[in-house]
């Protein structure tokens, strides 16, 4: 393939890796140990910590937050505090308030409501905040946005246009299931014939989301409580060069139930120029057996599609 032969571009700016928040309802111990390992071993620069899907899960994780944050920071990693992606009531808002009183960390806004609480101080926005164009980018920058993780569906033309304009640091998710939708209704509970209020935390049964297939048996989505994720893992390992050429230097890995240390290493190696993207793609496929990768959104087609090297990697 032509791409593999090309001399690799010298990085203009130091590329950064962000580990997104754990989206799934892992057991609290698994959650803590995951972050401990990330702190000790993962070659990432930034780690997002916080519940973004369902506030009902948070009481289980909360007792471990202080030690997780401390462990990550002593390992030299920047910690970003993530917040809920659908804020409805006072309790939801209180959860953001509780996080934002601590001014020593960047807060990642995932619902516009949180902006009200962060007025006048620097903040980050997550991929569920709709930053589709220069107008919105410019407005949020004026209000203090320093880092913006862009919506997963943006095609390359939009990413390039935003990168030309941005003063804030832009981030693009390059690995993991794509967050496709969020609802007030809990689909996990509904699948088990339960109501959200008496959900018995059934989302905890599916560490990588509950598979949802079509009536003809095609894998389609993963249900994660009130969230719908793609069945495919988004994977832009072969697009990293192009993203950097646009001026995007921060890349998000969304934690899956696989060896995320090795995943981070694969991306780090490609960013450092020490491994070819196609070779890394092979490594990533071996790390997530049975998983299909997609990069369609980047290429302006169906998000589920695998284009270029992904098409042949199937």
């Amino acid at each position: 393939m032509a791409l593999t032969k090309k001399p690799r571009r010298k990085p203009k700016s130091n590329p950064q890796l962000t580990l997104g928040p754990v989206l799934f309802n892992w057991s609290a111990e698994k959650w803590r140990d995951f972050y401990f390992r990330i702190a000790d071993e993962a070659p990432v620069d930034t780690v997002c910590v916080g519940e973004v899907v369902c506030l009902k899960r948070w009481p289980f994780f909360e007792p471990f937050v202080a030690e997780v944050v401390e462990r990550l920071e002593s390992a030299g990693k920047e910690v970003v505090r993530s917040t809920l992606s659908l804020i409805m009531d006072a309790r939801d808002l209180d959860s953001v308030r509780a996080i934002s009183v601590d001014e020593s960390h960047f807060v990642e806004v995932n619902d516009v409501a949180a902006l009200t609480l962060l007025a006048g101080r620097p903040f980050a926005t997550g991929p569920m905040v709709n930053v589709y164009n220069e107008g919105t980018l410019d407005f949020l920058e004026r209000r203090g946005a320093k880092r913006i993780s862009l919506p997963v569906e943006l095609p390359r033309a939009s990413l390039a246009a935003l990168a030309r304009q941005s003063k804030a640091e832009l981030e693009v998710q390059v690995y993991g299931r794509l967050p496709l939708a969020i609802s007030v209704r809990c689909f996990h509970a509904r699948a088990h014939g339960l109501h959200k209020d008496g959900c018995q935390y059934v989302c905890g049964e599916d560490a990588d989301g509950m598979p949802l297939t079509t009536l003809d048996g095609t894998a389609f989505l993963r249900v994660n409580g009130t969230q719908a994720l793609s069945d495919t893992y988004g994977n832009l390992v072969c697009e990293l060069d192009e993203l950097r050429a646009m001026g995007i230097h921060r890349f998000r890995l969304s934690p899956q139930n696989v060896d995320m240390i090795a995943v981070a290493q694969a991306f780090r190696d490609v960013l450092a120029g020490s491994r070819e993207p196609e070779a890394a793609l092979g490594d990533l496929a071996r790390l997530a057996p049975g998983i299909s990768f997609s990069n369609g959104f980047f290429h302006g087609v169906e998000g589920v599609s695998g284009v270029g090297p992904l098409a042949s990697a199937e």
């Binding site: 589709y132 794509l178 496709l180 939708a181 609802s183 959104f297 169906e302």
Partner: peptide, 21 residues
Amino acid sequence: GIMAEGRCVLSSYVTGQSPNT
């Protein structure tokens, strides 16, 4: 609408056309 409106890319994931844009 079942999903939070304007924040759903399910259709886009399947068709490549974003309801948002």
